[in-house]
């Protein structure tokens, strides 16, 4: 059972991603639509991987990641960023890694997401 914390302000999106992930694999997905609560949720849920949208109101994905890095217990949590800024092809060609971070391009294809989650988890292991 892989615990995935899914962070995106778009409720309808998280609804489907959760449904798809859970139906495709042994995933337990918790949804968080408010980025300010992420750190607390991480502590509480103890996810194996964090799927994090980049562009959110009030607090961006980068800010959340920075917050997590500050705390030792959360510093090593693998993160997969979701972003609309990069075309799917681009993300793929660079191995889904940009600047040392894992990215999946929006709109999210579930198979793609699963692949990168595996990659991120493998790396941090």
């Amino acid at each position: 059972m892989i615990r995935v914390l899914l962070v995106d302000d778009e409720k309808d999106l998280t609804f489907f991603v959760k449904k798809n992930l859970e139906s495709k694999g042994d995933y337990q997905v918790r949804v968080c639509n408010d980025p300010r609560l992420v750190v607390a949720e991480v502590r509480d849920f103890q996810p194996h991987v964090l799927v994090l949208d980049m562009m959110m109101p009030e607090v961006s994905g980068e800010d959340v990641a920075a917050d997590l890095r500050e705390s030792k217990e959360t510093a090593r949590l693998p993160i997969v960023f979701l972003t609309a800024l990069v075309k799917e092809g681009e993300a793929g060609s660079s191995g889904n890694v940009i600047g040392g971070q894992f990215f999946v391009a929006k709109p999210v294809k579930i198979d793609e997401l699963i692949r990168v989650i595996k990659l991120a988890m493998a790396q941090s292991a």
Binding site: N20, K106, P107
Partner: peptide
């Protein structure tokens, strides 16, 4: 892309 993401997610579902 957000709405598109929803569409894609929904369709996949």
């Amino acid at each position: 892309k957000n709405p598109l993401g929803i569409v894609l997610g929904g369709v996949e579902f």
